[in-house]
Nucleic acid binder design. Structure first.
Length: 937
RNA sequence: GCUUCGGUGGCGGAAUUGGUAGACGCGCUGGAUUCAAAAUCCAGUUCUGUAAAGAGUGUGGGUUCGAUUCCCACCCGAAGUACCA
């Protein structure tokens, strides 16, 4: 009987889903374990072999935990709102919900084929109204909250209102938008409702404000910072400019500190934590206040180097700084305005590529040095970023290279505050190896002491304060797109009003066109039924808008990260109609124990979702702060692209070695037409694309070779390998094993189909262990000690490897095990049974088949996982000396204690140790519990 | 520039706290089986050398009886980030 993987896999996949084998229950006496994958975006292209890598790893771990007696939750769903579906809708006119459904169906089919143990009864889709109802609900919660800096948590807006009513906002310490207005309770109570609303909006966790946004006109929408790469849009690579727009934002910056310190408590990969730390960008320093000559206003500048305060020779403002207009005087007005205009025209990309050129203009105004009262000029320059710190810099040319360059370029004075340090060529940027000079009372101090004293002086004069600054910006939450969650918001008197939770979900309306309207309104502006009737509490026709009962709705939709920021909680109770998840289910599952996904989400989804969970936690809606205890980033599987060389301007292609400095272009060709020797099948190529039909080819030795290169797998590069082809040819079990065998889970690695024969023949050998001459043949006898040794070595290694997520080495261990067992022709039932259970997380179909052939009725998935017994392995007790330092150390292979005489004998008979002993006598033997033996001589 | 991670055969990659470097797989070579091929099985495969032997984990130093592993300097690669004051 040969290994018929096609039938076996089909049979068991049917069995598993038919019997709901992997359904997880919210009440169980078993300990819980929650394994989650980052849910996919169902794109039109389908899966390639790179996609399932993480799913296979998480599936192995889930199955392993099931064997270990855990109640495992292993769900899957779809992040189904998003731009690609909408782009497709724009091009074809088909409704995104239609194409999304199709794509999901195809994804599901492909996933099912790999034998995953997902509990599909818990599937969720972010674009389902039953789901986004709760996304909208949470948005309302954000809107109705403010952030209290004293208790460092989000609180209900009602509490803020009562604070205002009692004390005004003088004593309040809250995270808010820049608004200078201060009021006492009396004034607050005298404000109109609209005015109150306006003020409250500055404090809400979700707020509307005019902010500078990244506008991508090609995509017709704003983008978050993490959606921009090298100044171009991540999707499409289009130009992005800065633009002021009224937008919803989420006050994620309030959580900077907690998001940063929370990293210490979670088991996430270090590089990823580091990325989040950089993105949050904490820096500690001082806020320095500069009076302005002839004005009442002050310029606040953030600096990390208050010790160099005496080196300040000018102040630079960002062109967008709010004081620029006020302080610019007559003759400077023109040049300043021109400069502002020009820098606002620059795209992100221009600004970035323009880093080296120096530009700026003098405002004509002067600031006063806070300690010396010297007059120092105020300049503007776009090297100062409006979005960071206060948008103002106290320029210290001697200590900062940009200030240095700027001062030299515009011939501004430079004061050297570093004793005996040469700054004639460049600024001195170090924080060590200097003492201060030219700095009055700071003279002779180093960085640390200088900072302390400078700050103390500034504080005394009320000219400065200690300040911590973060790079993390509030997240823009509006998208001018169709395929996203609608806001549960209508506008009354131009102020946003939340629709009551009772009437959720606010369903996405149908539109004819998915592009923004011509007057720049988002696509929802194309809907004729997008108004809110406050009497009946329903969506009605736009014609009925009277601004008394019927009001216009918010036209923007939420960004992609809204739905993905809390989905892990929904899996716990996915069909709940009354809550996003019941308290009982939340308390039972608590958090994700293992989360697997790509590191490309480090500063997007993985930061937003942490924030979102913190927020829910503050409101007492979830029981844990951080939702994922452990996270693993799977590396990408790369494609092995093939190229042909085309002579420039011709339709002639030349084989790889014939280039000889001719001018050529590289053209991707489909890797299916290239064999493992990089030879191209020209006949198939000619049929593939018309340009090759009549093309000329120059051969070397009658063969045509292509150039190979490893790059990302993508349809457009013609290097995609589909899991379906592999399943057809070798089966899902082989694919699963091979993907794990390819290398460490977290490393990027190129796909190479040729290598798969190794894991395929391993499975055949495994199958043959149970079969002899076409018959299933295992015997019940006493297992040989040799077979037990082989088995238990493997059990030990595999258990350890799975716990360490070192799946590639456990596959190796299986291969060694099967080879060794077949070498000694072992067909002992108990040994092979244990091996089958051991292998089943990796190759579930074949193991399930064999399990049933062994006469078991239950599915293999819940059988107790084999544990190793050291008694079977013990043998060579001493390996070799470990270290020699007056003492000799021996490493033991087994923990079992040893007879001292045996050690002595071994030591003396071993030639290597004999050399070390050099004739000396063994005085004392110390056995250390940690497997090490010290021999003193 | 800064931060982080990495550099081991023809290739993907193994190697516990420093202890026989190259497990396992691919590829390659030879052999068996076959009319032949596929498949399968056996043997070999770091490099130099016929061999004996020697060299060898990016480079150069150091610690150590012993270094892929620890320390210092440098080179190269990948990822992230960047007028961040």
């Amino acid at each position: 009987m040969s290994y018929d993987f096609i039938n076996i896999e089909e049979k068991w996949q049917k069995y598993w889903s038919g019997n709901k084998v992997f359904k997880a229950y919210n009440n169980s006496t078993l300990p819980k374990y929650y394994v989650m994958d980052m849910f996919p975006y169902p794109s039109g292209a389908g899966l390639h072999v790179g996609h399932p890598l993480g799913y296979i790893a998480s599936d192995i771990y889930s199955r392993f935990k099931r064997h270990k007696g855990f109640n495992v939750l292993h769900p899957q769903g779809y992040d189904s709102f998003g731009l690609p579906a909408e782009q497709y809708a724009i091009q074809t006119g088909r409704h995104p919900s239609e194409t999304t459904k199709e794509n999901i169906l195809r994804y599901r089919k492909q996933l099912d084929r790999l034998g995953f143990s997902f509990d599909w009864s818990r599937e969720i889709r972010t674009s389902n109204k039953d789901y986004y109802k709760w996304t909208q609900w949470m948005f309302i919660k954000l809107y109705n909250s403010w952030f209290d800096l004293k208790s460092n948590k989000a609180r209900s807006i009602d509490e803020l209102i009562s604070v205002f009513e009692k004390n005004g906002n003088y004593e309040l310490s809250a995270s808010k938008n820049e608004s200078s207005e201060e009021f006492n309770s009396k004034r607050w109570n005298s404000f109109s409702d609209q005015k109150k609303e306006k003020i409250l909006l500055d404090y809400r966790m979700a707020f509307l404000s005019e902010t500078e946004v990244n506008w991508c006109s090609k995509l017709g929408t704003v983008l978050a910072n993490d959606e921009i790469i090298d100044g171009l849009s991540e999707r499409g690579g289009y130009e992005v400019i800065r633009k002021k727009m009224t937008q919803w934002s989420i006050r994620i910056s309030a959580y900077s500190d907690r998001l940063l310190s929370g990293l210490n408590d979670i088991d996430w990969p270090d590089p990823l934590k580091e990325m989040q730390r950089n993105w949050i960008g904490k820096s500690e320093g001082s806020l320095v206040k500069f009076d302005i000559l002839n004005f009442d206003n002050q310029i606040e500048a953030f600096t990390t180097r208050p010790d160099t305060i005496y080196g300040v020779t000018f102040v630079t403002l960002a062109p967008e700084h709010s004081l620029v207009e006020l302080i610019t005087k007559g003759e400077n007005k023109n040049s300043v305005n021109n400069y502002i205009l020009e820098s606002s025209k620059k795209t992100e990309r221009d600004r970035m590529s323009d880093v080296k050129s120096i530009s700026g203009v003098f405002t004509g105004a002067y600031a006063l040095h806070p300690l010396t009262n010297n007059k120092i000029p105020i300049w503007i320059s776009d090297y100062v970023l409006a979005g960071y710190g206060t948008g103002a810099v106290m320029a210290v040319p001697c200590g900062d290279q940009r200030d240095y360059n700027f001062a030299n370029f515009f011939d501004l004075p430079i004061v050297n505050v570093f004793k005996d340090i040469d700054i004639s060529k460049e600024a001195f940027k170090e924080k060590d190896n200097f003492v201060l000079t030219n700095s009055e009372e700071l003279n002779g101090l180093d960085f640390k002491k200088g900072c302390l004293l400078a700050l103390k002086k500034l504080e005394k004069l009320d000219k400065g304060s200690h300040e911590i600054n973060y790079k993390l910006r509030d997240a823009v939450f509006s998208r001018q797109r169709y395929w996203g969650e609608p806001f549960p918001v209508y506008y009354r008197n131009n102020m946003p009003v939340m629709i009551s939770e009772k009437y959720l979900p606010i369903e996405l309306p149908d539109v004819d066109k998915y592009l923004p309207t011509e007057d720049g309104k988002p696509p929802l502006g194309n809907s004729s039924n997008w108004a809110w009737d406050t009497l009946n509490n329903i969506i009605v026709s736009n014609n009925l808008i009277d601004n008394e009962i019927v009001f216009r709705m918010e036209l923007n939709t939420m960004p992609g990260w809204a739905g993905s920021s809390w989905y892990f909680n929904r899996y716990m109770d996915p069909t709940n109609k009354d809550e996003f998840a019941s308290k009982k289910s939340l308390d039972y599952w608590k958090e994700v124990d293992l989360y697997i996904g790509g590191s490309e989400h480090a500063t997007g989804h993985l930061l937003y979702s942490r924030f979102w969970q913190y927020f829910l936690y503050d409101l007492g809606l979830v029981p844990v702060k951080d939702y994922a205890k452990k996270l693993i980033n799977q590396g990408m599987i790369l494609g092995n692209s093939a190229f042909v060389y085309r002579l420039n301007g011709t339709n002639t292609y030349i084989s790889k070695e014939l280039i000889n400095r001719q001018h050529v272009q590289l053209i991707h060709v489909d890797i299916r037409y290239v064999n493992s020797n990089d030879e191209l099948d020209l006949e198939s190529l000619r049929k593939w694309q018309p340009q090759f039909k009549e093309a000329k080819f120059e051969f070397e030795n009658d063969k045509f070779f292509v150039k190979r290169e490893v790059e990302k797998m993508s349809k457009s590069k013609y290097n995609v390998v589909s899991p379906d082809e592999i399943c057809e040819k070798y089966g899902a079990d082989t694919l699963r094993l091979y993907e794990m065998f390819l290398g460490p889970i977290d490393q990027a690695k190129p796909w190479n189909t040729a290598g798969i024969t190794g894991t395929f023949s391993f499975l055949k050998k495994f199958w043959n262990l149970f079969h002899e001459n076409e018959n299933f043949n295992v015997v019940i006898d006493k297992p040989s000690s040799e077979s037990l040794k082989i088995l238990h070595k493997t059990i030990k290694k595999v258990n350890k490897d799975i716990e360490n997520f070192s799946f590639n080495t456990s596959v190796s261990a299986f291969m060694i095990c099967v080879n060794s067992l077949s070498a000694i022709k072992c067909n002992n039932r108990s040994v092979l049974e244990s091996l089958t259970v051991l292998l089943s997380p990796f190759a579930p179909h074949i193991c399930e088949e064999i399990w049933s052939k062994l006469g078991h009725k239950e599915t293999i998935s819940f059988v107790k996982y084999p544990e190793y017994n050291s008694d079977y392995i013990k043998e060579d007790n001493i390996e070799y000396p470990v270290s020699f330092n007056g003492k000799l150390k021996f490493k033991l292979i087994q923990e079992s204690s040893l007879v001292i005489d045996q050690i002595k004998q071994n030591v003396i008979s071993d030639q290597r140790t004999n050399n070390f002993l050099d004739g000396r006598e063994i005085k004392k033997i110390i056995i250390v519990p940690g497997k090490i033996i010290n021999i003193v001589c």
